[in-house]
């Protein structure tokens, strides 16, 4: 890469970068695991507890339908929450780090 060689190892040891790394890792992998577990409950539940999925909630609409529908809303909610978290936390910290080290 034809550009000014930064001291990458030094940046990686910067306490602010370590904080970014820790908070991002916890947030991203944590919510990813939550989303994945929630998703796999759908096929597992349909296979293991079809009776539960068949319980009617409103009219003929049953637990299974609402649970499948909820998958969409949970995914969207995670997406929106992540966007707001990233603006408040990771983007802010990253900009602070860039300003501090004059990386731009």
């Amino acid at each position: 890469m034809a550009q000014k060689q930064e001291d990458w190892a030094a940046i990686a040891r910067n306490p602010k970068f370590i904080e970014i790394h820790k908070r991002k890792t916890a947030f991203l992998f944590g919510w990813w695991i939550f989303s994945t577990v929630y998703y796999f409950l759908l096929p597992i539940g349909a296979g293991a507890a079809p009776g539960f999925f068949s319980i009617k909630v409103i009219g003929t609409i049953n637990v299974g339908y609402l649970f499948a529908l909820s998958q969409f809303f949970v995914s969207w909610a995670i997406a929106i929450y992540y966007a707001s978290w990233a603006t408040r936390v990771s983007d802010r910290l990253t900009n602070e780090l860039i300003d501090e080290l004059k990386l731009r």
Binding site: L28, F29, W31, W32, S35, T36, Y39, Q71, F72, S75, I78, A79, Y82
Partner: peptide
């Protein structure tokens, strides 16, 4: 759709 949570995160 859920696949996109992985793409996003």
């Amino acid at each position: 759709l859920v696949a996109y949570v992985t793409v996003l995160l």
